[in-house]
Amino acid sequence: MAALRFAAPSDVTRSWTHPSPPWMQRAGHAVLAGGGVWLVDPPDGDGLDAGIAELDAPVRGVLQLLDRHPRDCAALAERLSVPLHVVPLGSGHGLPFEVVPMWHLPVWKEDALWIAESGTLIVPEALVGAPDFAAPGERVGVHPMRRLLPPSVLKRFAGDVEHLLLGHGDALHGDAARAAVRDALGGSRRRLPRLLAAQLTRAARGRFRG
């Protein structure tokens, strides 16, 4: 099993990235909410159980927030004997956080999560931190396929975010998290030409072959 790379912890989160494929930086998260731990879009690997245990609370469930992020959600829910919640979560989910619908289309179903008690915003795909998805110079950017229609619903959280957890790339905390949300949404359309040029260069070099 692959060794996971854990990011710097916070008091309410543990975040990690899977090493394969390296350019994608597939990230999973364990977050505290409502007295329990919730796993979000988790890829499994060495060190996962120990990382979750550091939060010192029972695991209550596994969430798949993007339709194309099955990752190891089902296998972990079965192994840990907890429910699996799959996008779209809907309004009657009974979970201890706010579900923020992003896109519910036949080819793209995505929900974000907002945990007000800790200021934790979890965005599986609309915002990305892996460098190959962002425009040059961006720490976090809007997903390439959403640049022309950025997720403006996230603007209301920008001033209150303490922990920004993404489906691709490292977690950000504090001022860095707030600045990243504002910058990503504010520069989405303006930086699209720069992003497309960079991705064409990467494709020509075979960068996206994993």
Results as ranks from 00 to 15, higher is better:
His104Asn: 14
His104Ile: 11
Leu105Asn: 11
Pro106Leu: 04
Val107Thr: 15
Ala112Trp: 06
Leu113Ala: 04
Leu113Ile: 13
Trp114His: 06
Ile115Thr: 06
Ile115Asp: 05
Glu117Gln: 08
Glu117Thr: 04
Ser118Glu: 10
Gly119Cys: 10
Thr120Leu: 08
Leu121Lys: 02
Leu121His: 08
Val123Arg: 02
Val123Phe: 05
Pro124Lys: 04
Pro124Val: 12
Glu125Pro: 00
Glu125Tyr: 10
Ala126His: 06
Leu127Phe: 09
Gly129Met: 02
Ala130Ile: 07
Pro131Ala: 09
Pro131Thr: 02
Pro131Met: 03
Asp132Tyr: 02
Asp132Pro: 00
Phe133Tyr: 15
Ala134Lys: 01
Ala134Arg: 09
Ala134Glu: 05
Ala134Cys: 15
Ala135Trp: 05
Pro136Val: 06
Pro136Asp: 02
Gly137Ser: 09
Gly137Pro: 09
Glu138Gln: 15
Glu138Leu: 00
Arg139Thr: 10
Gly141Ala: 13
Gly141Thr: 06
Gly141Cys: 00
Val142Met: 05
Val142Ile: 06
His143Thr: 00
His143Gly: 01
Pro144Val: 10
Arg146Phe: 15
Arg146Val: 10
Arg146Glu: 14
Arg146Thr: 13
Leu148Pro: 00
Leu148Ser: 12
Leu149Ile: 14
Leu149Ser: 14
Pro151Cys: 07
Pro151His: 04
Ser152Ile: 12
Val153Ile: 09
Val153Trp: 01
Leu154Lys: 08
Lys155Met: 13
Arg156Leu: 13
Arg156Gly: 11
Arg156Ala: 14
Phe157Arg: 00
